[in-house]
């Protein structure tokens, strides 16, 4: 196999839209293929690399700036880098894209109501009650990507479906080899029938 080409998968979307869940599933799938993978997750990064930062617009920008720097180094060194950050502002994501280069934006589209219903971390409840300020979707805007490489609809798709979409798109973009296995395209009987059709039309 050719040398691994580094890239950054940038998962963006509301809190609770499934960014981390999907990044973990994709991480597993890529590792199974023998790829070097690193995952940078909003919640984890904020406990280490950027623990000094808060949630003001300025601090959020700094948070993404530092993560972008790390992602750039990893990508440059052939690592599949999975970043899951709400990253609500288009302009900031555009800067990360320009900085990193091999940048694949994954928009985790999920209705706000579904995210509120899920409220995995109990944050929406607090935000709605006014206990958290500047909370994306409640008291701070989320700017959806205008032209992301990948859109997954995490409100209606299963994790497996969304993961399959991401892997197929990565193959199309030339970052990974296409999946040759998977569900059978033609059963033996169907394959014979299809070949017969081609024969009847003179293509075999």
């Amino acid at each position: 196999m050719a040398e691994q080409k580094g890239f950054t998968l940038w998962f963006t979307g509301l809190s609770g839209s499934g960014k981390t869940t999907l990044a973990k599933a994709v991480e597993q799938a890529l590792r199974k293929r023998g790829l070097k993978v690193e995952r940078l997750d909003g919640d984890i990064v904020r406990r280490s690399l950027t623990r000094d930062l808060g949630f003001s617009k300025e601090d959020r920008d700094k948070n993404i700036e530092r993560v972008t720097f790390v992602a750039k180094l990893l990508t440059r060194n052939g690592v599949a880098t999975l970043c899951s950050f709400i990253s609500p502002y288009r302009e900031v994501r555009a800067r990360s894209r320009a900085e990193i280069g091999n940048f694949v934006e994954v928009y985790c589209e999920c209705p706000l109501e579904t995210c509120i219903e899920r409220d995995v971390k109990g944050l929406y409840k607090k935000a709605i009650n006014g206990e958290i300020e500047n909370f994306t979707g409640i008291s701070d805007p989320y700017e959806p990507p205008e032209n992301p490489e990948i859109v997954v609809h995490t409100g209606s798709e299963t994790v497996e479906e969304s993961t399959a979409i991401i892997l197929r798109r990565l193959a199309e973009l030339g970052y990974i080899e296409p999946e040759l296995t998977g569900a059978v395209v033609y059963s033996a009987e169907e394959e014979t029938e299809v070949e017969e059709r081609l024969r009847a039309l003179g293509y075999i």
């Binding site: 193959a171 199309e172 030339g174 296409p178 998977g182 395209v185 033609y186 394959e191 299809v194 070949e195 081609l198």
Partner: peptide, 9 residues
């Protein structure tokens, strides 16, 4: 037989 699965785009 090439299919949408083998289409790389």
């Amino acid at each position: 037989i090439p299919t949408s699965r083998t289409m790389r785009s």
